[in-house]
Structures are given as C-alpha cells and as structure tokens.
Amino acid sequence: MSEEKIKRKPWKKNLYENEEYPDNYTDISFLEELKKNLYIRNVTFKEACFGAGLVSQEICIVVIFACSFIYLYNEWLDPIDLIIYISMASFGAYCLLFYDNYNFLQTCRTLCCYIICSYLLSPVLKTLTETISTDTIYLTTVFMMIIHLIFFDYGVAALIVSSSLSLNAAIFGAVCLTSRLPTSISVTAFIFITVHCFALAPLFFTKIGFSFFMLILIIIATSTLLYSLSCIMTVFFLISIFFINVICPYLFIKWYSYKDNIYGPWDEAVINIPSNSI
C-alpha cells in the first residue's frame, strides 16, 4: 500500500488531474485556507461597561419621567414651581454648554413660541385621550417606553437604531399620559418635562460626554426620587441597573471567547463600487 502511495503523482487541488486518487480522497491540504475570527475586535470589560452605562443612563431618564408623572398626578408638586425650576436648570445648562453653538435671540424666540404653544394646546392634549381607559393608557405608555429604549441611538451603528422612532414613541407615550393629569397647567408642566427628558437630555449628555461619575450621580438621583414613591420599585430598579451594568458586560466578555467565525475561499466576494455609472 505504501509503495503504491509513493508511485502516485502528488495530489493537486484541481478537478482534471488526480485520476489515481479515489473520489473521496482527502488531502493533507484539506481546509488549509480556512481562517477563523478574522475581523474580531477585543472588547475590554471597561468598554463593555461603558456601552451598558449608556443604556442604564437612558433607563434612568425614563424612570425620572415616570416619577414626575406620579408627582404631578397626585398633585404633590406645584406645576408652576416645577416649570420654573426646570427652566432655571436648563437655562444654566444652556449658558454653560451651548451658548457658542446657538444664536441666543433665536433660541429665545423658539422657546417663547414653544412655551406659548404648549400652554395653549394643553387643554386639547388633556382631553385628547380622555375617553380611553386608564389601563390601556398605562399599557401603551409602557410599550412606547420599551420601544424608545430599544430604538434609542446609543452610539452604535446598528440597523435597528432609529432616533426619530425612539423620540416619537416617547412623545406618544407622554401624550397618552397627559389626559390623566388633573389640570391644564400640570399638562403643560408634564410636556415640559417630556421635552427635557427625551429631546434635550440626549443633547446634554452627548455634550458633556459619558463618564462613570455622571452615571453614578444619575443613578443615585433616580433611586432617591424613586425611593420617595416605592421602596420595592427602588430595589427592583437597583437590581436591574446592577444586572445591566455589571452582569451583562461580564457575560458578554466571558462568552466572547466562544465566537467562532469561519472564513474561506467559499465566501462571497465583497465588492465596493463607487456607483457613478447608475
């Protein structure tokens, strides 16, 4: 047998020679061109936490939004006070961070326009979904907030990301809730908070950049606010934040070693054409 092997011509990877070899012969060169994990990117634990932090930051904002609704709903807060405090805070943030970016007068004009509009429209908003049952309203809002969290732009170029859908879902959820509020002015205050949470906060957070210090600060603030409403919910909140920020990145890093992408000559060639012809 071995003598026979020596006599044979060396096997070649083509389809027209190798007559001396059986059809199911497997050469040593079999799968030589196989490559694994070519485009792998090593993610450190810190980077993974960083990514998870953005998610928990957005969850905190949603929780703050929900808490503010409960405060306004139960009339534990004076809506006018709330508007004044928030305006002061956002004016401060504007002066510190955005003053160079936007024209002051124009911003003032837009702001006045917006405040007057939301004040005038608040009775309409209040009665808009009044006929719908409360359970439906809460359920819709929960769904909308989940959609908001799923499609929010966390800075990853994924197909699923859609900032407009995310923002619109949040606004829709807020509009649903407004009909449960007691007075028109509280509706105005609530719309004010919604805009701050979902339209202005992302701008603010991208401007100041992400830091763990900031994240911890927000988590503490949110849990304090939540604690004033319910102890159990605070515990749930903290557990889920811990799960997202510590356990998920840990599992991600741990399971990353199981990644086993196979590449080889059978892969479809990728073409990149500057499409000037069509």
């Binding site: 389809l15 059986p22 059809d23 199911n24 497997t26 079999f30 799968l31 061109e33 196989l34 196979i262 080889g264 059978w266």
Partner: peptide, 18 residues
C-alpha cells in the same frame, strides 16, 4: 465545495466525494 460541505454539514470527509 467539499471543504465547504464538510464544514457546513459536519459530515465525515470520507463520506464526501468530489
């Protein structure tokens, strides 16, 4: 094709002819 099939379908290479 044989390399591809062996990898994809986890068939023993002896059971694959070209």
């Amino acid at each position: 094709g044989k390399e591809n099939t062996v990898l994809r379908a986890h068939v023993n290479h002896d059971r694959v002819s070209v």
